[in-house]
């Protein structure tokens, strides 16, 4: 089977990360921001997979599982916070969550 250069996978991870970051910075709906964060997390995971593939080590896969569980926990907490926020203010606009300003 033809080996895929690890650089391509890293490149894909980078593109995915950038897309995710853009989504965090640009989108105003909290749920979409959350989804973008998930994309970023997965991109990071992909980078790890690519590295594991490059060095033929299982550590890359291990890190991905790690990140997955982390992401799951974080998403549940984040969704709970979003629920409370929506309950309080009736909107999902991230820009409205700014009462901690100086």
């Amino acid at each position: 089977m033809a080996t895929v250069p690890a650089e391509y996978a890293l490149g894909l991870a980078a593109v995915l990360f950038a897309l995710g970051l853009t989504g965090v910075l640009v989108r105003r709906n909290m749920v979409y921001v959350l989804m973008s964060i998930e994309v970023m997390l997965n991109a990071a995971g992909m980078a790890f997979i690519a590295a594991g593939y490059r060095w033929a080590e299982p550590d890359g896969q291990v890190m991905f599982v790690f990140i997955l569980s982390l992401a799951a926990a974080e998403v549940s907490v984040a969704l709970a916070v979003i629920f409370r926020f929506f309950h309080r203010t009736g909107t999902l606009d991230v820009d409205k969550a700014s009462s901690l300003k100086g």
Partner: peptide, 17 residues
């Protein structure tokens, strides 16, 4: 300086990035 503390999450994120 206080203008950086806008409370806007997205700006914070941008700063971090």
């Amino acid at each position: 300086l206080v203008k950086t503390q806008s409370g806007q999450v997205r700006r914070y994120a941008a700063g971090m990035a």
